[in-house]
Computed example of a mutant assay.
Amino acid sequence: MTAPSAPSAPSAPSGPSVADERARLLNLAYRMLGSRAEAEDVVQETYARWYALSEPQRAAVLAPHSWLTKVAGRICLDVLRSARVRRESYVGEWIPEPLPERTEWLAGAAYEGAADPAERVTLDESVSMAFLVVLEAMTPAERVAFVLHDVFRYPFDEVADIVGRSSAACRQLASSARRRVRDARSSAGTVPTGGRARVVREFKEAWEAADIQALVALLDPGATAVGDGGGLVSAVTRPIEGAERVARFFAERTLPGRLSVEETLVNGQPGLVAALDGAVVAVYAFDVVDARIHRIWAVLNPEKLRPWTEQRP
C-alpha cells in the first residue's frame, strides 16, 4: 500500500523522530514472527501506512515511535493468526528462520520501560533458536504481549492498545507466556558459550568421521533432530528421537567432498553451516543442555537460507 506522495525508498522515513526506527522494528517483528522475510514485509507495510498519512496527519502524531510500534505490532498479530493456518499445510516441520552471524537483527535498543529485572529476557536470549521455538508454542496474543512487555519493556497499557485487550488481560497473556519460558529455562541447565561451541565442534568432527559412538556420547539420551525442507528439498518430515537414532542418521549421511561444513553463529549461538559449491544448503542450530546436545534444528528450506548465501564472499 503506497500513497501518491510516498518516496521511492520507504525504508528510510524522513524526519529525525522516525529515521532510526527501522532496525528496532525489524528486531521486534522478527522475534514476534520467527521469519526474517515476514518481518521485512511487516516493516515495509508499517512505513507504507506511515507515508499514506497526509502531512498534517503525520504532524499530528505526537509520538511516531509509539505509532510505528502499534502499527507493526498489529500487523504481526494478523500475520501470526494467518500463519497458524498456513503452517498446517506446511510440508514437514516448520523451524524459525535462522539468522547469520553478521546481522543487525541480533541487537537493538530495547524500550526502557519498567519491568521486574528477575523476569527480564535479554535481546540475545530472545533471538536464540531454542527461545524462538518456545515462542512458536504460544498463541498469537500471548507471543505479541510477551515480546512487547518482557523483551522490549513496553508497559501493559501500551501493549493493550496493540493487542486490543485490556491491560489486565495482557498481564495474564504475558504471565502464561512467561510460565512457558520459565519451564524451558529450568530444563535447559547452564552451559557457557565456550562450552557450547566445544560441543558443537566435537559433533562436527564426529559427524565428519562417521563415528556413531562419539556422536552418541555428545547427545542427550532423549535428543531430537528436526529438519525443515519446506517441501522444496528432501528432509525428514518428522523429528528423529533418541541419541542412537540421531547419531546413526548423521553418521549414515557422509559428507561429499564438495560439501563443506563450518562452525558459525546461528542466532547468536554456536552452530554449523553447510555449503555446496559456495552456496549454503543447510544451517544447523543446537540446544546444549548440561554439556550434551538436547536438540538439533536443521534448516534446509532454500527460501530461509538466502541471507546466508548472500552474505558469503
Rank of each mutant, 00 (worst) to 15 (best):
V159R: 02
E208S: 10
A217T: 08
A169T: 13
A291V: 05
T190E: 14
G230C: 09
T237I: 09
L259T: 13
E158L: 12
R258E: 15
K204V: 06
E244C: 01
V289I: 03
S234T: 14
P239H: 07
S234C: 03
K204G: 01
T193N: 06
R182H: 10
A177H: 04
V288G: 00
G231R: 05
G194I: 05
I212D: 06
T190I: 12
K204A: 12
S167I: 00
G230Y: 05
R182N: 09
W207R: 12
D290P: 04
A214H: 03
R201D: 11
T224D: 03
D220K: 08
G194F: 06
Q213N: 13
P270S: 10
L173Y: 15
E262G: 00
A251R: 03
A177T: 03
A291M: 13
A235L: 05
V159N: 01
A243G: 02
R253A: 09
R185H: 09
E263V: 06
A177F: 08
R245N: 11
V199F: 05
S234R: 15
E158A: 11
F249K: 08
A291C: 05
G195D: 14
V233A: 03
E262M: 10
A279K: 14
D228F: 05
A247Y: 01
A197H: 08
V289H: 10
Q213G: 02
A184N: 04
A209W: 05
A210L: 04
V281C: 07
A279W: 10
G271C: 07
E241N: 08
A168S: 13
G195N: 10
V199M: 04
S260Y: 04
G222P: 02
R198A: 13
R245A: 15
R258I: 11
V199S: 02
V181A: 10
P270M: 11
L219E: 01
V191K: 04
V226T: 15
D277K: 10
V181W: 11
S175V: 08
V181F: 09
V216K: 12
A279V: 15
E244Q: 14
E205F: 07
G271Y: 02
V280L: 07
R238A: 15
G227S: 14
R258S: 14
A285L: 06
R292A: 09
A217R: 14
D287P: 00
R292V: 12
V200G: 02
A285E: 04
V233C: 03
C170E: 03
I162M: 08
Q213C: 03
S187M: 10
R171C: 05
A251P: 03
V261Q: 09
L259A: 05
L232D: 09
R201L: 13
D228C: 07
L232H: 13
Q172E: 14
G189A: 08
A210D: 05
G189P: 01
S167T: 12
A243C: 06
D277G: 01
G257M: 11
S187I: 11
L218P: 00
L219S: 00
E244F: 08
I240H: 05
V199Y: 01
P256T: 11
L219D: 00
R178F: 11
E205H: 10
G257A: 15
P221R: 05
F250T: 04
L255R: 14
A197L: 10
A206L: 06
A177P: 02
V233L: 03
D157E: 14
D220F: 04
V261S: 10
T254S: 15
A282H: 03
